[in-house]
Design a binder for these strands. Structure first.
Lengths: 188, 188
DNA sequence: GTCGAGTGAGAACGGTCGTTCTCACGACGT
DNA sequence: ACGTCGTGAGAACGACCGTTCTCACTCGAC
């Protein structure tokens, strides 16, 4: 098995286990077993668990935002429709088996106080989401500040969907987002 | 020292340490030292760490909601003003030193997958908040479903305030809440 | 064929954590 | 005064975790 394949398998295993159980609940041995690589190889590619955790978050950040953007781009609707498509995608995500909230929020709560790299990764992720939503809001002609409010709604929906174990918060957030775009102050 | 005083000191220490550093990062020995009780006493009152964690969450749930309700009750305004006071209180909370997001969300991310008691406590807390906000929304004459949307906004604000380390999300959430109460569909 | 470098598999190590045990001491009933 | 029971302080125990080491083995270079 070449290096790239091993890297991918390790990151796949880490993501599956860390997301489902929390970082601290998963030992390096479990990652090794799930990935099917040797412990030596694991430490060659990721010299410490911290490195592996940050690599896991980095890859998930890129993939999550790319998946979201792909879904939005697949919607050939009005700019406002593209904004609402964000919450449809969230609803899909919430309904997927194994959904357990935002990996970054979870990791931040668990490790943010002691691992600066984790805290920074979580911040970067949320900033990227806010910037993306701000772009969509601007395209849709929403009033200034709509982007951060859309992010607020998405964030609340993710957390509440995780805790209540239903995708319903996505629809609620979508409805409020619709109000923000078409309501007082907005040029529809 | 009598039993009640020891209980209080232990819960104070547990809350301070668990909230600041995460549950798994704090050993029972650290709780003992901070509380100034003997290890034997600690285990007499809380037979396992799980018990201590659940007691910590239970007490925090009650106190947090009571503090919020106290602040809302201290506002002698209109019913809609009482709703908005929730977000003013959140802004206060976000600005307090040591603020690190919602203790329940943090604990859920860390332990929810393996500790059913923690997951249940987090769910109960969020349900209680949603019910409280629904009551306020009904008093203010908001349309049906406003309560859960207010909860959505509060949740997003808490998470984003923790990650961005600014109290600004509270003001954003307040503004959207105002829109929900006075905007389309609402009987002002 | 022989040598050497790298690999696979897992044992080993140092540290920490949750929990329990030891043991000397002090308060209290008689 | 004396025995007894509960307490305080901390050592001890078993388990686990992150990380490193050992060692037999494979495979390519000369």
């Amino acid at each position: 098995m070449d290096t790239d394949a091993a890297r991918t398998r390790i990151l796949d295993a880490a993501e599956e286990l860390f997301y489902a159980q929390g970082v601290q609940a998963v030992g390096m041995d479990a990652v090794r077993t799930t990935a099917g690589v040797t412990l030596r190889r694991l430490y060659q590619l990721f010299p410490s668990k911290d490195d592996l955790v940050e690599a896991y978050l980095d890859r998930r950040d890129r993939r999550w935002l790319a998946d979201l953007a792909d879904h939005v781009d697949a919607v050939a609707g009005t700019p406002a429709g593209r904004v609402l498509a964000v919450y449809d995608w969230l609803a899909d995500w919430f309904a997927r088996p194994g959904f357990r909230g935002c990996a970054f929020v979870n990791s931040y709560g668990e490790l943010g106080a002691t691992a600066p790299g984790v805290a920074a990764a979580a911040r970067r992720h949320k900033e990227a989401l806010r910037d993306y939503l701000t772009g969509l809001a601007d395209d849709a002609g929403g009033p200034a500040g709509t982007g951060v409010r859309l992010a607020l709604l998405a964030e609340g929906a993710i957390t509440l969907a995780a805790l209540t174990r239903t995708p319903a918060p996505a629809a609620e957030a979508r409805e409020v987002a619709r109000l923000l775009l078409t309501g007082a102050g907005a040029r529809t």
